[in-house]
Amino acid sequence: MDPRSEVLLRQAELFGGRVLLAGLPADDLLGSLPAASGWSWHAGDQSALEARFAGRSHFGVEVPDTDFDSAVLFLPKSRELADYLLQALAARLPGAALYLVGEKRGGIERAGKQQLAAYGKPRKLDSARHCQLWQVSVETPPPAPDLNALAQTFSLSLADGPLQVVSLPGVFSHGRLDRGSALLLLHLDGLPSGPLLDFGCGAGVIGATLKRRYPDSAVTLLDVDAFAVASSRLTLAANGLDAEVIAGDGIRCAPRELAAIISNPPFHQGVHTDYQATETLLREAASHLLGKGQMRLVANSFLRYAPLIEQHLGACRTLAEDDGFRVYQANRG
């Protein structure tokens, strides 16, 4: 059981009714709270929850259209995302209880004191398992937020013209181009013809660039996060581009028979470091590539991905190294 869930269950009498658990982990919490429902924006968690508790958890970027009398937000890493989620939940809970739970090292004390204060007088209910549980009675319900109005748009000057990028709260490198993607953008020439995949698409910078540069290739953008998927769709639309965007937990959700996989893969999940998605990508990329298909990947220089690439795919070349990042290329052997 996730330690945040354990803290909730220490106060189980508060959560016996129709409570919405927003951003819940994929553990047995729904089993312990039979009247509760879930709201997830992580495709992997949602898949696990659906398998165990069919129909009780909803996936997406908007508050589910379901009845609930109180809500618990599992504090996300991004403050902007937390602001949006708290406002969206508080708008549905006039006079009712809104709870916030999170890890101490994730900033729960600050969030409990500061972010909940917009809706009433917050109070700490419990502290255990290196986590805290906070509560506020929504005295001043806000209007429901317009998620698209919270998007940040910026323009990239690329060789083939400006690209408009639209990112939503919580998406990696929100409102700016990260250094890894900037380096990868300089090394997207000469890809093999055929279907292309942007793995871990974020706001869609790489995928949109690929579609514009290779208009005759089918391009798929894949991310585990619903807010990233929504951002990528906005970025494609802002540039008049048409590509498939899918939510999925890792490379197993990607199409087969790809000409190339291009990625600036994530290695953080919440406040924890997590390399699993990238290591699984490297182990299984070959099964998604055509016979001479190619993978092109950017990563922090300190991450030892080259041996994994060579073990599971083929000879690995370093195309570029700059500013603490490397661009690797390998063809399926």
Rank of each mutant, 00 (worst) to 15 (best):
T278S: 15
A90C: 03
E321Q: 14
P265Q: 11
R56Y: 09
V63T: 12
G23T: 07
H58E: 13
Q87D: 01
L177F: 00
Q294S: 13
V229Y: 04
V271C: 12
V72W: 03
E50M: 02
S155T: 15
L303V: 06
S157T: 13
L81P: 03
L30I: 07
S232A: 14
D146W: 02
T209W: 03
A82R: 08
N148G: 14
G180A: 07
L186Y: 05
L86G: 00
P195G: 11
L191S: 10
F227I: 02
V205M: 04
L147G: 06
L14P: 03
A118Y: 09
R52G: 07
L75W: 05
D189T: 12
T140A: 15
G250L: 06
T220E: 07
L150K: 12
P76E: 05
M1E: 14
L258W: 06
K121C: 13
A128G: 08
S5A: 12
L282S: 05
R213Q: 15
A259K: 11
L186Q: 14
P76V: 03
A48E: 10
L147D: 01
Y99H: 08
L197H: 15
Y305K: 07
F172P: 00
L177Y: 03
S40G: 06
A90I: 02
P143V: 11
Q276T: 15
G190Q: 09
A88W: 03
A243C: 06
S37H: 04
R233H: 11
L297M: 11
G55M: 02
R326G: 00
L236N: 09
L197C: 13
D67S: 15
E13Q: 15
R10T: 15
G112I: 09
A182F: 00
Y99Q: 04
K292Q: 14
F325E: 04
F154C: 02
T209F: 01
L185F: 04
A286H: 05
E62Y: 05
L158I: 08
V61A: 14
C131E: 02
D2A: 13
A260R: 06
S78C: 05
V229I: 04
G207K: 08
V205S: 05
G120E: 11
A182N: 02
A82Y: 03
V138R: 11
Q269A: 11
L9G: 13
A54S: 11
L150Q: 15
R317T: 14
C201F: 03
W39H: 13
S193V: 11
A243M: 07
L21Q: 05
T273D: 14
D249P: 08
A90N: 10
